[in-house]
Design a protein around this nucleic acid. Structure first.
Lengths: 141, 141
DNA sequence: TAATTTTACTTCTAAAACAAAAGTAATAAT
DNA sequence: ATTATTACTTTTGTTTTAGAAGTAAAATTA
């Protein structure tokens, strides 16, 4: 279950963790979709298979990108939230939104194109503000 | 061979193209490694298999991210270069470098950590300058 | 309180993707 | 003319993924 690094290149190492079709979608769902449970992630538009979802959640927790918690009054529902390490993935995701908006334009959802437009006004400010927002949602230590 | 999109989400769509362990390494090699031929990419540290390399190069060309060209005096060697669409992947790669430097620190190559430090001084300026550099290397239309 | 539903998974099997090695055809160098 | 190089393709075995079905504990409903 642990991640092996192919080299000491930071890009290669990031891809050893993030380089598949699902990992960053889970992060997206937490960041932008207000999702936090297994069921939430299962019901996303791209239809991730439950086995893959379980595998990715476990990996992300092991890596310290997600935190696995519970609510005080519920013993069943598992709440996944972003750690600082996870929140710091925001710039990568933002840049993917911008790249797709620029280069796959006509096929991208209109609401998301609006977001891209807003981000472009001041990317640094958006990332800083939204990072603050995500930090305010972090699980208490 | 053509890429199918799972949804109209820009993040999901970016991952439909970039979401594997190899695609962005080819882009990295062109951007930062002065590589341009099949042999160049084959000899990268992460040891990509030739079949996968051929598959990814074809996909990236089909998508208009890479341009496949030749040198005037050589009929054999194929030169791959970035298109504008490819150059625009730079911010994503830069953010991966920064994320890995911050979060996988001790395991990342020291030279690359120096680069990360430099980028952090002024990320926007670095991206703008380096984009200009990459554009100056583009294949003539 | 008993029955039903929900949640977070696990297991199973078939299909697809990947890795490693070997092979090929055209071109270039010797 | 021979050998080496380049850019692949092909083959075979392994790993990963997709989709469906199943399970145990907890929560809700009747």
């Amino acid at each position: 279950m642990d991640t092996k690094f192919r080299s000491s290149c930071p890009i290669s190492s990031a891809l050893d963790i993030l380089g598949d079709k699902w990992t960053l979608l889970i992060i997206r769902d937490i960041m932008f979709g207000k999702k936090s449970t297994f069921k939430d992630f299962s019901s996303s538009g791209e239809k991730i298979a439950s086995g893959i979802l379980a595998n990715r959640l476990a990996k992300l927790e092991t890596l310290g990108i997600l935190h696995k918690g519970k609510l005080p009054d519920n013993k069943k529902t598992v709440i996944y939230s972003l750690t600082q390490k996870g929140i710091e993935l925001l710039p990568i995701i933002v840049d993917m939104i911008l790249w797709s908006d620029n280069n796959l334009g006509d096929h991208v959802d209109e609401k998301m194109r609006e977001l891209a437009k807003k981000i472009r006004l001041d990317k640094e400010a958006f990332v800083n503000n939204y990072t603050g927002h995500l930090e305010s949602l972090m699980a208490a230590p």
